[in-house]
């Protein structure tokens, strides 16, 4: 464990808590893409299959359990409890356009052709693009609630910090996983446009509005 990865995980945790707070306090899922949340749930389910078979540390297990349960809870809140406030008309990104290419790529490009490894690789590829429905929805509605943009900033920062973690592990632990690194870079790059808007607008106290 290094500071980059720890802070990265805490950003990830903060993002998920921010999202649940937004939903619970505003009693609404307006502006949230249920599809992205379904994809994130799938990412955790396919990545943490080794939750009970491969014990790494108490921290690792606790975080995995929290990520799994919170992402499933978020999907539940969006599609059942606060369904009335779900804006399905703007959440129209086709998930199959992400699921199928990630699945095919995971079968072709992986470290080992075994079910667990392919599922882990699929989750890495899927996580890189899982935010696209949410970013697409914001581009359609042209705006995002301030707390939703904080959520996105924390979520985008987490994988950016992981890139620094991978640099650290490469130089100091001689540890390098090209699949995780390449997907992590793609994932972080997808947020760059949003990061620019967040820093120039939200941090100036303005609402996140996309230029019409």
């Amino acid at each position: 464990m290094n500071a980059f990865r720890l802070v990265g995980d805490l950003c990830h945790l903060a993002a998920i808590v921010l999202l649940l707070l937004k939903i619970w306090k505003s009693r609404s899922v307006a502006g949230l893409s249920g599809k992205s949340q379904i994809l994130f749930g799938l990412v955790f389910v396919t990545r943490y299959l080794d939750l009970v078979t491969n014990f790494v540390s108490p921290y690792n297990t606790i975080m995995k359990v929290f990520f799994l349960s919170s992402s499933i809870a978020t999907v539940y809140l969006i599609y059942t409890k606060f369904k009335a406030t779900y804006d399905g008309n703007h959440d129209t990104f086709r998930m199959e356009f992400l699921l199928i290419p990630c699945a095919l790529l995971a079968i072709v490009v992986n470290h080992e052709f075994s079910p667990m490894e392919i599922l882990w690789t699929f989750s890495i590829y899927l996580e890189a693009v899982a935010i696209l429905p949410q970013l697409f929805m914001i581009s359609k509605t042209g705006e995002a609630e301030t707390i939703t943009s904080h959520y996105l900033f924390a979520l985008g920062s987490y994988r950016g910090l992981y890139i620094m973690n991978w640099l650290y592990r490469y130089y100091y632990e001689n540890n390098f996983d090209v699949i995780a690194v390449v997907a992590g870079i793609v994932q972080t790059v997808l947020y760059c446009d949003f990061f620019y808007l967040y820093i120039t607008k939200v941090l100036q106290g303005k609402k996140l509005q996309l230029p019409a």
Binding site: D50, S57, N60, Y162, N165, W166, R169, D177
Partner: peptide, 10 residues
Amino acid sequence: TLKQKSKDEL
């Protein structure tokens, strides 16, 4: 040799 597995990460 480079160790590849990053399975100790979340």
